[in-house]
């Protein structure tokens, strides 16, 4: 979703400071709404001694929550890379009935509240649900397992890769592919050597945005998972549980770890986009 924000901004040489109040509103609002809450978290984290911080941050239950959160999100990101590319390809290159509808529906996960997503996913993938009842005889349980966490993450991060790739695929010159073909390259060679390289920056950006979204997801996962520690408990739900137990130190430490990782991902996405701009120029 950060695709737009860091595009090159042509800087005007003659700034007109005839409206200073937008600046005042922006700074005041951001101070109260953004900096103050972030500072509150970091200051609270600073009151925990380093030894205690380390002990909470690396406690077995926390490590297991990071594992469920990040490993599942990485798995989801790779699924997104494959199927997101496929969906974008199909939407850009082929014509089929109801294509316009399918294209518009890709954005549904952006618009559908996550609690609704969780509720309907648990209903479809539970043992009595449409898909769940087909998987149960195969011994596959989705709802209330780590697989359910993955399905929820797949749902909410679906649009990112597709939407990142569509405009780039659009601009891709089909002549180049045909040239590669006519020179004897196989379909698979054409894809790996000709199609994929120019898509790579956009693909990675989409994957990273989806990953970031999946790591931070709470609403749909808390509903589809059983939220049992060492089984399918994600970091966000662990923070929530710590807060419910009035364990503010625990919540603060894990929250700080999660925030720092989110910031790292944000920096990574910005670097990716900078790389992508250079690639485009």
């Amino acid at each position: 979703m950060a695709v737009s924000s860091t595009q090159p901004i042509p800087v005007r040489k003659n700034p007109k400071f005839h409206l200073t109040w937008p600046w005042r509103i922006t700074i005041t609002y951001m101070t109260f709404m953004l900096f103050l809450p972030v500072a509150a978290l970091f200051l609270r984290a600073a009151t925990v001694s380093p030894a205690e911080f380390w002990q909470i941050a690396t406690s077995p239950v926390a490590l297991s929550a990071y594992d469920v959160t990040f490993v599942t999100a990485i798995f989801v990101a790779s699924v997104n890379a494959v199927f997101g590319t496929l969906i974008a390809w199909v939407l850009v290159r082929y014509d089929f009935p109801l294509k316009r509808f399918v294209d518009a529906a890709i954005d549904l996960p952006f618009a559908l509240p996550t609690a609704v997503a969780g509720l309907t996913l648990v209903s479809v993938y539970s043992e009595t649900g449409w898909v769940g009842s087909l998987l149960t005889p195969l011994g596959i349980r989705v709802a209330f397992t780590r697989l359910g966490v993955g399905v929820a993450m797949l749902f909410i991060s679906l649009p990112f890769v597709v939407r990142s790739l569509q405009p780039v695929l659009q601009e891709l010159d089909i002549d180049v592919e045909e040239a590669a073909w006519s020179l004897g390259a196989s379909r698979i060679q054409t894809f790996w050597r000709v199609v994929l390289p120019p898509l790579l920056p956009a693909l990675l950006t989409g994957v990273a945005l989806g990953f970031s979204r999946a790591v931070g997801e709470y609403g749909s996962i808390v509903i589809i998972a059983s939220n049992i520690a060492f089984k399918d408990l994600i970091a966000s739900v662990l923070i929530f549980q710590r807060l419910e137990q009035y364990d503010y130190a625990g919540a603060t430490v894990i929250g700080t770890v999660l925030l720092l990782i989110s910031l790292l991902i944000l920096v990574g996405i910005n670097l990716l986009q900078a790389w992508r701009r250079r690639y485009e120029v």
Binding site: M1, T6, I9, L34, F240, L259
Partner: peptide, 29 residues
């Protein structure tokens, strides 16, 4: 025109990168 404009844009984007539970936690703290 001011230095660090890209940084300001990134900072405004911060709420998208933060887990909603962490956002709620900040407000409680």
């Amino acid at each position: 025109k001011f230095p660090g404009r890209a940084l300001v844009v990134s900072i405004i984007d911060l709420p998208f990168a933060v887990s909603p539970v962490v956002a709620g936690l900040m407000l409680i703290l």
